[in-house]
Design a protein around this nucleic acid. Structure first.
Lengths: 156, 156
DNA sequence: CATATTCGCGAATAATCCTCGGCATTTTTG
DNA sequence: CAAAAATGCCGAGGATTATTCGCGAATATG
């Protein structure tokens, strides 16, 4: 369904750098006139390629100084209830991203909290109390090197 | 330095949901008139709290179907050269986010590529050839549950 | 080859927005 | 307590923008 061409990719690249760029601005940088440019953007939005526009906020500056990568294992019986697990994890606001992964763990969740005590609270009161969870390993981020970097879009 | 109050947080919350919201729109949702609202936004930008605005692009829709969490270990000798390692990882466009973490590994990098063969190429040609790297473990994302979720901003 | 569809361009319209002072109010400072 | 700083509101000018329409070219379709 979503067959992207050269222009679409170019638009996405601009929007990935500055999501607040105006339509005419984008059109210029993509060598397109405003009208078809806007039409493409709307199409990208409706087709689901563009899921939205987010402000990139510095975690530390807003008091969220601790990032933890949490490996979560669930019991065999609850593997079928994976759906429920996902919903539960999705609902946790401290979870910034989450994947079902291969390897030792089942889930890998990126958690962003204020500090260690806040994480302890989240761990004991929320994560560990989730049904089916058998083991949790926490990997603390010591230093952030890159977050929310741009995708390497294909060069058409 | 950055002392955020109730309004700033509210603004950030709006911008986190829709980074393309217009200033008057934000002002309304924050119960502020446009002028001070814009002033605050500019301040947030200049103080570094707001690092930018990014389009949220669906990875799969642009042909990036594989996400891998790569645990990278570096030799003891190169621990001092950690800076160089960071720069190197930062420069890899496939690396969407990267942290120096505690635990078994040294770095945890989130890599987004087209498919398995693309990852193999990246692994053998880029990651494994980085000086100082002693071991790499790849955790493949089977299913994406949440990516780039909003930060849980403090409720002032 | 003819038709239909897609796609980009250009212009005009109408709406929206950003910016800028001036003034009042609150909070901080000495 | 008084002065100063910060902060918000209001209003208007001026610019920019988003959006729509028809036209023409290129491409796909049969």
């Amino acid at each position: 369904m979503p067959n992207l061409d050269k222009f679409d990719i170019a638009i996405l690249k601009v929007l990935q750098e500055d999501a607040r760029a105006t339509n005419v601005e984008i059109a210029e940088r993509v060598n397109l006139s405003p009208s078809p440019c806007l039409r493409r953007i709307r199409n990208l939005e409706k087709s689901g390629v563009l899921r939205g526009y987010r402000a990139d906020i510095d975690r530390k500056e807003v008091g969220l100084g601790l990032t933890v990568f949490v490996e979560i294992k669930v019991g065999r019986h609850s593997r079928e209830n994976a759906m429920a697990q996902q919903e539960a994890l999705l609902a946790v606001p401290e979870v910034v991203s989450c994947f079902l992964i291969s390897g030792n763990a089942d889930f890998l969740a990126e958690v962003v909290v204020e500090d260690l005590s806040a994480y302890e609270r989240l761990l004991t009161e929320t994560l560990l109390t989730m049904p089916g969870v058998t083991d949790i390993r926490s990997n603390f981020a010591i230093r952030s090197i890159k977050t929310g970097g741009p995708l390497k879009l294909p060069t058409l």
